[in-house]
Every structure is written in structure tokens, then in C-alpha cells.
Amino acid sequence: MIRRVVAVLVVGAWAVAQAQVPLIVEQVSPAQVLDWLERSSLPPEVKASWLGILPGAFAQGTVDPRVAKPFFEALATVPVEVAIQLTQILIPVLEQGVVMDHLLITASKAIAKGMQTQRWDYVASELRLRARLGAATFIVLGAYSPALRMEVARILGDFITGVSGSFTDYDGMLLFVQSELGKLARTGTPLAPEIDALLAAVRAPVLAQIMERVLQPERR
């Protein structure tokens, strides 16, 4: 009996630990993020937009404060018009209830790269595409975990921006998704069992649905 209890505790704690984004950043509370944001040098309209939606997002678990803090710290380093533009890209996705952890990390990456290239128009365009992909994938692949859905969105974004440039090459897209998810599954990630199920279900028409939503972002 005790062995069973211990086993259940171990498996349960492990599963919960795996659900968190693997990060080596500082631990912060939602209140600390909101306080930092309020005191930051970000433009007032940017602060107002985020402060209006973040408390609810933290409460619903759609934004992880550990991810939000580095993102806002990065956002505070970019030109004002860029901070406004990136905010206008991300807030509508958050308003749709999309779990934002992966997308905020992507935005932080975009800012890190933008600081090197100073190609902010390029950065904003690609982030807009990836945000739309995130929202569309989140809706179309609703049966799967948020982490896996956002991983698929990342793969589709890599395919369009770095491999093919095509929004309609669904066969090529499918092959790329299968290849990338296969590599991820072989790492032994906790997502592996779910990846098998997703790969069995995702076909070109599903990808076509996602792309249709990406190209018509006003549709809900």
C-alpha cells in the first residue's frame, strides 16, 4: 500500500513538474511582474495595454510570470514605436485565450535578434506571422496540449520563413512537421506520447485549415 502511495506521489509530482516550461530564469510572482511593469520605462500606452489584460491572464494561467518578466525587460530596451507595434501584435492573441508562454519566449528571441540586426520591420512582420500561426494552431489543434500546439506553430513558422516560403505547400509542410516532431519525440520529451497521436491525425487538410485562419486572422 505504502509503495503504491509513494509511486503515485512520484509520478504525480513528476507530471506536474514536466508541465512547466523548462526555464532557468528567476522565479517571480504575478504581483512582482505587474509592479515591475508599472514602474518600467515602457510607453504609457504599452503599460496600459498589458496591465489591463495581464492580471486575468495570470489568473487563467495563459501567461507564466517567469516568461513575462524577461519579455517585458527585453521590450523595455527596444525603440518606443517597436514596443507599441509588438504589443499590438501580441495582445489580440492573448485576448483569444491562447497560452502565451511559447509565443512570449519567441517574442523575446525576436527582440534579442532585432537588437543585433536593427531590422525591426522584419522582426515585427515575422512575429505577426508567428502570432497568427500560434492563434490558428491553438484553435485548430484544440485536442492537444498547449505546449504541443505551440510547438507545431513554431514548426510551421520555421517552414514558411526558413524552408519553403509557401503558405500552401501542404505536402511539404506535413513532411516538415513529421520530421521536426519525430526529432522532438526521440528526445524522450514528456510530449512524446501526444506527438504520436498528433502525427497519426494531422494531414494536409488540417494544415490547410490552419493556414486559412492565418491568412484570415479576423475570423474567430
Binding site: 526555464l23 532557468i24 530564469v25 517567469r66 516568461v67 524577461p70 512570449l104 528571441k109
Partner: peptide, 9 residues
């Protein structure tokens, strides 16, 4: 090093 694991910090 910056990366996904550090939220690019």
C-alpha cells in the same frame, strides 16, 4: 549563451 531555456536572457 542565450536561448529558449533562459527566455533569451
Amino acid at each position: 549563451v542565450v536561448g529558449d531555456f533562459s527566455a533569451w536572457q
